[in-house]
């Protein structure tokens, strides 16, 4: 195993993510209710919705970081949070976290080793070079700017094998060239058979997606083609950023 994507023996017929009747409450607040969705191999799904709609709750439920109050999520046929699901799923959180006493290169080596990558160096070098972090491999996270922390978090999500990638607003703080590289890396992952779900407010992500799933007030309200104009109208809010020319 050399790292990278979709080397986990996924069966093409079964969906990589299947949520059925998924719900989550925080005391009296209903964050997600009766959500059902299936995502198959090779898809790039833009997960959209206003602030507080339930996007992050959905992603963290799928990642196994939250427990549902109703329903269930399966990752490649296994219950979310189980060892097979953790092996199949890579999650890039909205707020990057790091060990403050460990360099970026050591982070990447550790995550790759945890996921059984035997010779991670080529993959680590590739990701560092593509994301413009090759000068920073020995730097500690405390030295990073916000954008660099985001890029480092993306590298950590991509350094290990996966068949499903969940990314929560991964483009926040990234400059245009880095965003472009991110899209290229996602395309590579999809070409290798992985599914990708990106939570976003950005039209450029929606435009690049193969499918758009919309959530509002915890309910699935849209599941269809990624038409930014239709999405904008549907959600009744103005998308501030336009795609880079």
């Amino acid at each position: 195993m050399s790292g990278g994507v979709a080397e986990l023996g996924h069966q093409a017929q079964a969906p990589l993510l299947r949520a059925r009747g998924l719900g989550r409450r925080y005391d009296d607040f209903v964050a997600l209710t009766n959500l059902g969705v299936e995502i198959g191999a090779g898809e790039l799904v833009a997960l959209v919705g206003p602030n507080g709609a339930g996007k992050t709750t959905f992603l963290t439920l799928a990642a196994g970081l939250l427990e549902p109050t109703s329903g269930a999520v399966e990752i490649d046929g296994a219950a979310a949070g189980s060892i097979p699901a953790r092996r199949a799923l890579s999650y890039i959180p909205d707020a990057p976290v790091f060990y403050e006493d460990v360099s970026l290169g050591e982070h990447l080596g550790y995550v790759a080793a945890l996921h059984g990558v035997e010779e991670p160096e080529p993959r680590i070098a590739f990701l560092l070079e593509r994301l413009g972090l090759d000068e920073w491999a020995d730097a500690l996270p405390g030295e990073f700017s916000r954008g660099m922390r985001q890029k480092a978090s993306i590298a950590l999500g991509l350094v290990r094998p996966f068949s499903l990638l969940l990314a929560d607003e991964p483009l926040d703080g990234l400059d245009p060239p880095s965003r472009e590289v991110f899209f290229e890396l996602l395309a590579e992952a999809r070409a290798a058979g992985a599914a990708v779900v990106v939570s976003t407010h950005r039209p450029d992500v929606i435009a690049a997606a193969s499918r758009c799933v919309g959530i509002r007030e915890g309910r699935l309200v849209y599941d269809g083609p990624p038409d930014p104009a239709a999405i904008e109208e549907f959600f009744e809010y103005t998308v501030a950023d336009r795609p880079e020319p």
């Binding site: 060892i83 976290v97 060990y99 945890l114 996921h115 950590l156």
Partner: peptide, 14 residues
């Protein structure tokens, strides 16, 4: 540590 949750506890190990 937050990073321990994100990387270690989400890895395929006991």
């Amino acid at each position: 540590e937050p990073a321990e949750v994100q990387y270690t506890l989400l890895a395929p190990l006991d």
